[in-house]
Amino acid sequence: MQTEICRLLGIRYPVFQGGMAWIADGRLAAAVSEGGGLGIIAAGNAPASYVEEQIHFARKRTEKPFGLNVMLRSPFADEVADLAAREGVRVVTTGAGNPAAFMDRWRRAGCAVIPVVASVAMAKLMERAGAAAVIAEGCESGGHVGETTTMALVPQVCDAVRLPVIAAGGIADGRGFAAALMLGAQGIQMGTRFLCAGECTIHPVYREKILRATDRSTIVTGRRNGHPVRSLRTAFSRRYEEAEYRGASETELDVLGTGALRLAVQEGDLESGCFLSGQIAGLVKRVQPAAEIVEEVTREAEQCLKGTSRWVR
């Protein structure tokens, strides 16, 4: 399986690993890239010094290209953006905002900028700003979400821009991968599936929650303050939802949410941690090496695509 994006980025398979904050470190990213996909280190809210360590760690583990996800709302976004340029990271993906202000800096440094978008207008804006591709992420995904599903978003983005489109949200196996290609995408990005990669260092409680998840295990909170987030249903999400419904102040909601991601990832704290997950978690049933995941979903997608001809005379 080779698409245009593979040639553009120098990767074997068009499979990206989502830049999950507090989770996607140099170890996971290197393992995915070694497996032929595109591993992505998440900067999250971390300072540049931490991100630099992760980049150097990944470089020790692989000579293959990997990416860096810059969270634009981070207080360290500016210094992380500089770091990406200085280190000449092959791919920069962005989330939570508009990266236009950093685009020139990254492009001059030879980084391929691939923003995550949740709408057609945002995809068009990113094309105009000089993006190399876009990741169209539907609301099935974990973490910050838009309103449109992957099924509806991807073909509309593909029609609106001339860039390669990577589909994300609700994809965890070769069937989703093949479907994404049918919608016009040139590749996929998966987050939740990689939560159960052997190289992913989340707390065992988090991993167990994903492995036991079903189709209805996630919920979106935060719509009221304009930052909707999909996570697993836990005591924390129930408390947050209750607070939203009873009209808690924004300050109270902020206090509830502050540090919740770290508590989930590092402490496995079901009472106060926010366990981000996509709707597809119910499909994730075992822990596997990242390279095996990349290989498996690609082989499955190839089988699906070859098999579709049986429906057509």
Partner: peptide, 28 residues
């Protein structure tokens, strides 16, 4: 925009439509 329930994605939609209408490029 908050009062009008315009979120960040709606803002981008609105800007793109206004660019088409006015012919000038608007920064977000």
């Amino acid at each position: 925009f908050k009062d009008l329930n315009i979120d960040s994605l709606d803002r981008v939609d609105l800007l793109m439509d206004l660019e088409d209408y006015t012919g000038v490029q608007i920064e977000l």
